[in-house]
């Protein structure tokens, strides 16, 4: 199911335009209060709006929420506490088919997702992860044309959330469901989505692949939100034969994950560059020596401008860490690049 959003506006959103292809997972990123949940609510028809929304080319603006056939996975799960797991999963189906058929279908879904053992449980007896799995089963049970996910794994521990994200992504791809995934985390967006959009103050400022945002975005608000990446030109790239490459950038030999394509640039966020006062030579993997050129004081953190070989890098550290290090312009520091934070283009 293809989604087209044209000039969507309301009390938060400002002229939002967006096209999402059928079966695509689109991540929506943005700070608190940017309008991410409002955008999902307008698509599902829960709040009024101006502009147009099309599903597969057909306008749906006049359809009420209950007729839009969108699945919505809420931030706070929203399993009905007075219904058993089976009744919860069968609920969307009961709005379409008779009660017995709905229950049979719900049993099939629970079995296919290995959740049948919880069929007679009330939600109060389930753990956070189990509840979220049931919520996914309930949302998918009505075979929605579009799935709207509003930070669905926010209240779950990191490991369970990572596992559930992977499971959900597989399900979405298997059933070719078009999905919009709202998150605060760039990492999650990159992991889950085919493309992502940055929504700031009701405006959709950037749409594209996760890597494009690092290399192409020149919007200050977007850069501020994702954390101003350092961009380095790659002079040469050498395969190490272990799924890793060695990229030479202005005299620094940086180990990077396998990218599979020729790459000319490397990006790393300033928060992924860690520094420490120099105490001996930096010889470990992705560690380099550098000289502090300048120290910029931002709201809650410090930006350290460092010269490393022929490159100028920015590192972001918290006030507490800065106070502990007692560093000043002209000091020598060790720089360490976080391997997982390196992106190439």
């Amino acid at each position: 199911m293809e989604i087209k959003i044209k000039n969507l506006s309301n009390f938060i959103l400002k002229e939002v335009n967006l096209n999402i292809a059928g079966g695509e997972i689109f991540a929506l990123l943005g700070p608190n209060g940017a309008g991410k949940t409002t955008l999902l609510n307008t698509i599902s028809g829960l709040i009024p709006y101006g502009g147009n929304i099309f599903f597969n080319g057909e306008p749906i603006d006049r359809l009420p929420a209950e007729k839009r056939k969108t699945g919505y996975l809420f931030q706070d799960i929203c399993l009905f506490p007075h219904m058993t797991v089976l009744e919860n999963v069968a609920y969307p189906l009961k709005n379409k088919i008779d009660k017995n058929a709905a229950n049979e279908e719900a049993i099939k879904i629970l079995k296919s997702m290995n959740l049948f053992k919880f069929a007679s449980h009330y939600p109060a007896r389930l753990s956070g992860g189990e509840k979220q799995k049931i919520a996914i089963a309930r949302t998918l049970s009505s075979k929605p044309r579009i799935l709207l996910l509003d930070e669905p794994f926010k209240s779950i521990d990191l490991n369970t959330a990572a596992y559930l994200r992977e499971e959900l992504k597989n399900l979405l791809k298997e059933f070719k469901i078009t999905a919009i995934y709202v998150t605060h985390s760039f990492f999650q967006a990159e992991e889950m989505a085919d493309r992502l959009g940055i929504l700031i103050d009701g405006r959709l400022l950037h749409i594209g692949g996760a890597r494009d945002i690092f290399f192409d975005s020149h919007d200050n608000e977007v850069s501020d939100f994702i954390g101003s990446p350092n961009i380095l030109n790659i002079d040469s790239l050498k395969a190490l034969g272990t799924g890793l490459f060695e990229a030479e950038c202005g005299g620094m030999n940086i180990i990077v994950p396998h990218w599979g394509k020729p790459a000319g640039k490397l990006a790393i966020l300033s928060k992924d560059i860690r520094i420490s006062p120099r105490n001996g030579g930096a010889t470990k993997l992705n560690q380099f020596e550098g000289d502090i050129i300048d120290i910029l004081h931002c709201d809650s953190h410090f930006k350290i401008k460092i010269a490393a070989k022929k490159n100028i890098l920015f590192s972001e550290i918290s006030k507490t860490v800065f106070d502990g290090f007692k560093i000043k312009a002209g000091d020598k520091v060790n720089i360490m690049l976080n391997l997982n934070g390196i992106r190439m283009n």
């Binding site: 209950e66 007729k67 706070d76 929203c78 009905f80 379409k96």
Partner: peptide, 13 residues
């Protein structure tokens, strides 16, 4: 209210 909104998106009148 979220229970009501959730039920609405599930097609309930």
């Amino acid at each position: 209210k979220n229970y009501i909104l959730a039920a609405k998106t599930m097609g309930a009148s």
